[in-house]
Design a protein around this nucleic acid. Structure first.
Length: 193
DNA sequence: ATGCAGATTGACT
DNA sequence: GTCAATCTGCATA
């Protein structure tokens, strides 16, 4: 017998082949799933940020291709993971249309669903509201690091994305967090669940 | 509730 | 050498 979970499909690659800002909005409410052996950790995406290319001075890709950001230039629907502040990882989904050579969506927040006990252990806290409500928190909770650089999120492997909420939620747009340039762009998107 | 220092290292100029 | 798409704990109010 197959359980319901096993027949859920990933979001197809074409979804990510659209404007980075649109993809960022549309990723809200989708489900991010991490499998580690038999263990499953998942959550609903509640906050995202779009980072584009030559028009976006806040983007890692702004000054062109480097070893770190190369995933942003490669196939859409894959993971771009980077290390920052000497101790954290941030997780992005590569997304762009044909007007841009690079682009990615930073996943900034999740509402935990499955594997909450594991998240608590990974995050060393019992407060559910503090498990995955930040870009470096969710990578800790889901045990995401450089090993997941380039992982294909359109394929059901160790890390992937599926449809989530059915109902459309109200989207709040604001300034992106923790950057110095490109602050006039309202490319931070949130929903409240 | 708001604010700030400190942690800690790799990527880039 | 500089500084980062951040988080935590502690301080003040």
């Amino acid at each position: 017998m197959e359980s319901k979970d096993e027949i859920v499909k990933t979001i197809p690659r074409t979804f990510y082949e659209r404007d980075t800002v649109k993809v960022a909005r549309d990723l809200l409410g989708k489900k991010l799933i991490r499998t580690i052996g038999k263990q499953t950790i998942s959550g609903i995406i509640t906050e995202t940020e779009a980072y584009r290319y030559a028009d976006d001075p806040a983007s890692h890709a702004y000054r062109g291709l480097t070893p770190r950001n190369r995933a942003m230039f490669e196939q859409v629907g894959k993971a771009y993971v980077y290390f920052t502040y000497g101790m954290y990882f941030c997780f992005n989904v590569v997304a762009r249309n044909h007007n841009f050579a690079a682009g990615a969506v930073l996943i900034r927040g999740l509402k935990p669903e499955k594997g909450i006990d594991v998240m608590k252990k990974n995050r060393k806290t019992n407060k559910i509201s503090n498990l995955a409500n930040g870009p470096a928190k969710l990578t800790q909770a889901l045990n995401i690091n450089k090993k997941q650089y380039g992982v294909d999120l359109a394929k059901k492997t160790e890390l992937y994305i599926t449809s989530g909420l059915d109902k459309k939620k109200k989207i709040f747009a604001s300034k992106r967090i923790g950057i110095k340039n490109g602050l006039h762009k309202l490319w931070n998107f949130k929903i409240s669940i």
